[in-house]
Amino acid sequence: MFIHLKNVSYTYNLNMPFETEALKSINLKIDKGEFIGIIGHTGCGKTTLLQLLNGLLEPTEGQILIDSIDIHKNKQKLREIRKKIGLAFQYPENQFFEETISKEIAFGPKNIGISDIELEQRIKRSLKMVDLDYSLYKDRSPFSLSGGEMRRAAIASILAIDPEIIILDEPTASLDPQSCYKLLSVIVNLYQKYNRTIIMVSHNMEIISELTKRIIVMEKGRVIMDDTPRNIFKYSIQKLESIGLSLPQITYTMYKLKKIGKPVSSAILTVEEAKDEILRLVKKR
């Protein structure tokens, strides 16, 4: 068990007139090597949860154990934890401040005391991980990049700390379809080729259902479902819709086919699966 949340609650503005409870007794276990998608309506506590995982917020109640160590018992441990868990906020390119991309990426590793010799290696490697060419990009200003490149450079700056777990808060927000596709292939690569654990928040059901291996559904500060994408989209259509979420379009299509009496499976997540299922149906005739 790598990350373990025990009865974690978080309240903003504790003991103030504006007190709001963002998370209510969350219990969660996350292993190494998982690919998790977190979905939920706006304001359900997703971002708060991500910040708790990284130790940026301290839970008002409960414990967060990482490698069976309570991360808030010891402040020194907290920095160690942040080396292991990289967090990319929404619009991570908003934190750029350096003149060149290589300096920007060097910020993280320098902070954790990486030597100059290793630094260049790290920059090269993290740029490669996000599929940006080192020699072409290292001296360019981060502000001269396109939206998609900026996003990937920002993620590279987090990868440079060499985290085992990468948390992404809506990585594809406001990207054009092509950059979005590119970024997703980078994320899949991080998971498959570089064996990183990925925790990702997204509002796009197609992305979540196709990529992730486990989905956590949140509502009003609680985890209400935690299962494989197939199980979640198979059994909980009404429940998901009642909390303002939708299914992937293709799942809807198959669901409707089934409703009008076609013998297809409704637990379909990708267009590819749907194609096979429909072909099977046609061939049977």
Partner: peptide, 16 residues
């Protein structure tokens, strides 16, 4: 709000 967000983002990148 933005200051808080950027501060958190930089802390996540190991800033002290």
């Amino acid at each position: 709000e933005e200051t808080e967000k950027i501060t958190k983002a930089q802390i996540a990148r190991g800033a002290d």
